[in-house]
Design a protein around this nucleic acid. Structure first.
Length: 676
DNA sequence: GGATGATCAGTTAC
DNA sequence: CGTAACTGATCATC
């Protein structure tokens, strides 16, 4: 029920009484920040406007979204134990509050059960940070390209991508995460164009840090609000900016905490990614190796010492505090890639030392997963088994709903009731146009040999897409745009060209499953990266000619109705690095005439339900004809999607015209519009 | 030719 | 301020 319970230690343990650091006047002009309160109380979320802006930002002319009012929200509806409701707090980044005297952390009279007690003297650092955004324009942070990013921050646009009223931690974490990804994809695109160093993760991370666009700033024991078990990540920097695990490389995150009069160093989060010799056979226990012993720069190995993270783990074993665990696995989808899964809270049961094969001593800690938590890494293990051998998937009604039409079988399962399957329809992986494709305007192609390369000024397809190829080398959509032009038959490049993504069809193990209250739904065994292609909306193009009463009976029509903000704001990376906005507001949004019905025929996408907080977006794509009014409708992942998470997209905002067809929304999201 | 290892540049927070 | 650290991309090697 309450978060505070997470902090209640074992029977022998004193109550923790560290005071939160807040209600202090900011020492420095703080950069804009989103800050989930670091204490254990219900998350108080504030967005603080920047004290100073770079020159040139007049008061007028700000975009309509993202006004610069200070607001702070006291979260309602969150249960709270043992603490009185808090007033609004100032959301100046925690780093700005750090003081040299540890006593300063106890200034507050509240009875917070637990919070950070960072006594290290790093006010200096905070100052430096702020300088990055200050009016003098001196960039205190080194991010190489594009050069003066922070000068170009546009006031309104900084806030623009954030939720309109960020009063729930999940929304903030998602927004921060999404922004990081948008930045990372864009930086990767630029890096690939210039054949530069490919650490887009670090570049995106540095910008997020410098602009203080992050969640859960300030360390805390227990859950990180807004981060849910099963959430997946592809880079350590992601864990960093959402406040799940602060060290960018280190495996052990720890902090100093007060226990009555004592002060102790305790571990708060570990990343178990197989860096040391761990055997993780089952998903409820974990043997974690202590840190150190193998220097990165020298060959020499030495015994591990009981200091830093190791000491914190040792103390945590005695304090019996909960420790967040992130498990890292090799991502089969990438050559050299990892996937990180947040697996919830664990406690250390025992520790010992072991002699490694190099003959040095190493600490070992056995952690036990706290009972009663939903599955995290266990789902990953399960679905990986299914992918290797689909016959191990139980509760199957039909092995392949596509009858072999898709290269990967589409499973039909029901674990809820006794429905035997969806109504009759014909499975097709193609769109049936009113006119045959051959009679449509042909698309012009490029003359690239072999494959199209980013940055090639001679590539007609690159030009067609506005200069950059729309996908990164790993096949991920970088940015949402009116139309994406893939290479097609008219092009000289081969099928290996990176600009052929959605035309190659699905690449995931889909599962059509029975939902609790929304009929059939769609989900997937694989984890899906933000920007990855998911599927096309196939069916019959019915167009405006057939707008009639008969439509209201058709639940399977796709139209390019304006989606909600989450979808519209997917692109907001560019703004942060001073590039031109690609944002299209709901007012500016122009629907396309195309209308596809999947009632009689369709593919997996006809089972995708609506959500006001979707994880999938649609994107028009062209490749086999030149009729831009009737493009293919392709779906891409809006954020990283954990295995077995239902795939949903935003069916669009109800307009007057379509209101007679509006339905009550059951998406259950906190930002639900109620109808769709 | 796909897995594996060595190398290197790079970040955060202590 | 130097430095440790369960990174991540690339290139050589088997």
């Amino acid at each position: 029920m309450d978060r505070a319970r997470n902090f209640i230690p074992g029977p022998n343990q004193e109550l923790l009484d560290i005071k939160p650091i807040r209600s202090l006047a900011p020492m420095f002009p703080a950069p804009m920040g989103v800050n989930i309160n670091q204490s254990s109380t219900p998350p108080l979320v504030c967005v603080t406007p920047v004290g100073q802006f770079p020159t040139g930002f007049g008061g007028g002319n700000l975009p309509a979204f993202g006004s610069f009012t200070t607001f702070s929200v006291t979260a309602n509806g969150f249960s709270q134990a043992g603490t009185s409701a808090n007033g609004a707090i100032d959301a100046t980044p925690i780093s700005a509050y750090k003081t040299r005297s540890s006593g300063a952390t106890a200034l507050n009279g509240d009875d917070e059960p637990y919070s950070g007690n960072q006594t290290s003297a790093s006010g200096r650092k905070a100052k430096k940070r702020s300088a990055g955004l200050s009016a003098d324009g001196s960039d205190g942070v080194k991010v190489k390209r594009p050069k003066p990013i922070y000068k170009n921050l546009v006031a309104g646009k900084e806030l623009a991508f954030l939720p309109a009223s960020p009063n729930n931690p999940r929304e903030i974490v998602e927004a921060v995460h999404m922004t990081f990804e948008a930045l990372r994809r864009r930086h990767l695109q630029m890096d690939e164009t210039q054949d530069a160093s490919r650490r887009a993760d670090l570049k995106a991370g540095a910008i997020m840090m410098a602009s203080n666009i992050r969640a859960n700033v300030g360390k805390r024991v227990g859950t990180a609000p807004g981060v849910e078990i099963g959430d997946i990540f592809y880079f350590r920097m992601e864990l960093c900016i959402i406040g799940l695990h602060a060290p960018s490389m280190g495996g052990i995150d720890y902090m100093s905490a007060k226990f009555g009069a004592d002060e102790d160093s305790v571990a708060i989060c570990i990343v178990a990614a197989g860096g040391y010799e761990n055997e993780d056979d089952d998903t409820d226990t974990l043997v974690y190796s202590g840190s150190g012993g193998n220097s990165r720069n020298t060959e020499e190995r030495h015994d591990q010492k009981l200091e830093r993270g190791n000491l914190a783990l040792e103390r945590s074993m005695h304090r019996k505090n909960e420790i967040r665990v992130v498990r890292g696995f090799k991502d089969p989808a990438m050559v050299a890639g990892k996937i990180y899964i947040y697996d919830g809270l664990y406690k250390i049961q025992e520790s010992w030392t072991e002699r490694t094969k190099f003959g040095v001593n190493c600490f070992k800690y056995r952690l036990q997963r706290e009972p009663g938590q939903r599955d995290g890494a266990a789902i990953w293990k399960m679905t990986q088994r299914w992918i290797q051998d689909p016959s191990t998937r139980g509760r199957v009604i039909l092995r392949d709903l596509s009858s072999g039409i898709e290269s990967i079988p589409v499973c039909l399962v029901n674990e809820v009731d006794h429905e035997k399957g969806p109504g009759q329809f014909t499975y097709t992986n193609q769109v049936k146009y009113l006119r045959p494709v051959s009679s449509m305007t042909p698309m012009q192609g490029c003359g690239c040999q072999s494959v199209c390369l980013p940055g090639d000024a001679n590539c007609a397809c690159g030009q067609h897409n506005g200069g950059d190829l729309p996908y990164s080398s790993s096949g991920v959509l970088v940015c949402r745009k009116p139309i994406v032009y893939e290479c097609g038959e008219a092009c000289h490049c081969t099928l290996n060209c990176r600009n052929r993504v959605s035309q190659k069809g699905i690449r995931f193990h889909f599962e059509v499953f029975r939902t609790a209250n929304r009929g059939w739904g769609l989900r997937c065994w694989e984890p899906i990266r933000a920007g990855a292609f998911i599927c096309e909306y196939t069916g019959e193009v019915i167009d405006e000619l057939k707008v009639n009463l008969d439509d209201s009976e058709d639940d399977y029509i796709f139209q390019t109705v304006c989606p909600g903000e989450k979808t519209l704001k997917w692109n907001f990376g560019p703004e942060l690095i001073g590039e031109q906005s690609t944002y299209v507001s709901a007012e500016e949004f122009q629907p396309l005439p195309i209308k596809i019905s999947a009632k009689k025929m369709g593919n997996v996408s006809r089972f995708m339900n609506h959500s006001c907080s979707p994880n999938v977006l649609w994107q028009p794509v062209q490749y086999n004809h030149g009729d831009d009014k009737h493009p293919h409708i392709m779906f891409f992942a809006l954020n990283h999607i954990a295995p077995m998470t239902e795939l949903t997209y935003d069916y669009g905002v109800v307009g007057e015209e379509t209101s007679h067809r509006a339905r009550t929304c059951l998406c259950g999201s906190l930002t639900c519009r109620g109808l769709f």
